[in-house]
Design a protein around this nucleic acid. Structure first.
Lengths: 346, 346
DNA sequence: TCTATTTCATGTAACGATATATATCGCGGT
DNA sequence: ACCGCGATATATATCGTTACATGAAATAGA
């Protein structure tokens, strides 16, 4: 047996009305709690029939009529098909989903490449009240993607986007990457580090630019003769990071500190040093960025800047709900604080 | 400036029709590529107006009429508000989202507590073509939740659920946890381990039961006098795991091997041993389960069973699409193979 | 008894799209 | 001249729900 009845139609409001011997309008009133218009007895009768027939309101019909959406779209623009498997993104989505779900909203996830945004998203049958976007790629691509989202004439919230476009009304939600970079610089300078090596992914990611900018600010302010070298790894993968670090160290002296653009990069670099009998933190200090719990498992425990991705998602959810309820949508930038987490690698 | 026009109405198919001087039906035909019914010239005219007016089809209206959904619901039933932040779940969701998005479907995420499933989901305005469910909790709760999903009369795919309910038509997708458990047993027995300690979370999670069952099978088949002790940690948190391991070891001799129900548990146990000057793997061998990349960063590299969560999600997506297209939905169980990944801890 | 007022319930017309059936045109064949 | 046919285009009804206006009892006040 696969289905009880060959094509059992889902009960509609009319079926309920007929069964309860009232008009569809009365059923609708019961459903929407407009109790001024329906007597207690009728209400009970209708509710019994709703239960008995297993009636569920059809959202499409309702939303068509009331012109309201109870769903927010999360758009993740990335080349990788595993867009969501990244731990940072996944934390953001978790926080967002939680806030929205608690407010009886739903989150709809859509991953796509930048060039698909135009064609596929816009013609797609996918109806939401607003968009939260996580957009990878370089500055110009990012801005183009944001503009396309804004063209949809709906509230847009963008994560990790420090640049506010001219004349565009969207919210930006990010953490204080620059401040985090400064904290790292200050911490290392206090330990008399003179020679800094930063390892960043080749992909142009604005949050990482900010982290570097903060680091440079710190060096400029308090760094005397401190030097910063930045090298880029083809990807964030373990192998690529170790590769680029190896190449750099082959014709440069050991730096005083290696700063990973994020925790995986820092850990990969650290393990490379271990394998070459460099002591951490005695010979080289190491700092990461993001504060992923999983990376706390490496020993020695990584010094990092905790960026609270989950809270980032929560904040986005709250901002979106607020705007949907007020009906107003003006540009605004939320910058969440970061927290320096000193481990044993510095 | 917040909005250009106070309340610019979104263009409808009628607006386009009027602008292109054709009937709405013709616009609809263009939109749906029914080119037999529209001349090339008309098509171009309509498309220009669509572009000019920024027309987008309203999904609710269309779905109401064609009675079709292009969205799949992912229901995550859990007590924790951070339901999605778990790395395993996040990988599953990533795989699922990727497959669905490629097929022009959308994934809608809904996290909730078990007891909310009834009231909130069923009355919610949230319309999908089927459900993929990740359900935490003990056996009876899980089954009750599955039944409630099935009551919605839509295709249901459940992850990590080895028990197939009587008379219920849903798909179960999981990995070969039992086989993984056997692999662990065989591997350790080959290294002459006699005394096994398994650390599991207190919460009753069927996949973990299966892993233990596989381990027991291996011991029974080849284990001579091998003994297995199972202890439960209040949660999977670092502190709780270390706590329960400490308590156990305080009045028991060191086992030959500690098997974590998953990687975080195994790593927590391992770090506890380090802190107490126990050598791994010389004094105690350690094995995890899941193969999370992040845990590869711990040194020595953890021996684990790779469970390919991402592929689990992909398989669910394919299964769901297949069933939606065929219109048939019969019970079926997919069991994905696991891969033993020998690290340096055994 | 007759009018106000309240309480409960209903009829009708949308929301924006599409399925179906029906029209109109021009053209080739007879 | 007539029929038939293919190629285009349209009119109408409908999906399930709710907003709005209206109606019919019942209650109250005089």
């Amino acid at each position: 047996m696969t289905n009880e009845a060959p094509a059992r139609r889902r009960a509609t409001i009319k079926d309920v009305a007929k069964a309860a011997d009232v008009s569809p309008m009365t059923v609708s009133n019961v459903l929407n709690g407009r109790l001024q218009y329906v007597s207690a007895a009728t209400k009970k009768r209708v509710e019994r029939e709703i239960e008995r027939l297993g009636y569920r309101r059809q959202a499409n019909a309702r939303n068509l009529r009331v012109a309201e959406q109870r769903s927010i779209g999360m758009v993740i623009v990335d080349e990788s098909p595993a867009f969501l498997a990244d731990f940072f993104t996944c934390q953001v989505v978790a926080g967002l989903a939680n806030v929205l779900n608690s407010a009886d909203y739903t989150l709809t996830v859509q991953g796509m490449r930048g060039d698909q945004l135009e064609t596929s998203m816009i013609t797609r049958n996918f109806e939401v009240g607003g968009f939260c976007a996580m957009i990878a790629g370089s500055g110009e691509e990012r801005r183009a993607a944001i503009r396309r989202l804004l063209d949809l004439d709906q509230p847009v919230i963008v994560f990790q986007e420090p640049i506010t476009l001219e004349g565009a009304d969207f919210c930006a939600i990010r953490q204080d990457d620059r401040g985090g970079g400064r904290l790292i610089g200050d911490h290392l300078l206090a330990r008399r580090v003179e020679d800094f090596l930063a390892v960043v992914p080749a992909q142009d990611w604005p949050a990482i630019e900010e982290r570097l900018a903060g680091l440079r600010e710190s060096l400029a302010a308090n760094g005397g003769g401190a030097r910063l070298t930045v090298i880029a790894s083809a990807s964030e993968s373990f192998a690529d990071v170790q590769d680029v670090v190896a190449r750099h160290l082959s014709d440069h002296p050991l730096p005083g500190a290696i700063i990973g653009a994020n925790d995986p990069i820092a850990t990969a670099a650290m393990l490379y040093l271990f394998d070459h009998d460099v002591r951490v933190p005695e010979d080289v200090r190491i700092v990461g960025f993001n504060g992923f719990e999983a990376h706390r498992y490496a020993r020695p425990r990584l010094t990092t800047v905790d960026s609270a991705a989950y809270q980032l998602g929560e904040q986005a959810g709250r901002a979106m709900l607020e705007r949907l309820e007020s009906g107003r949508f003006a540009r605004h930038e939320y910058i969440l604080p970061v927290h320096f987490d000193a481990g044993a690698t510095t």
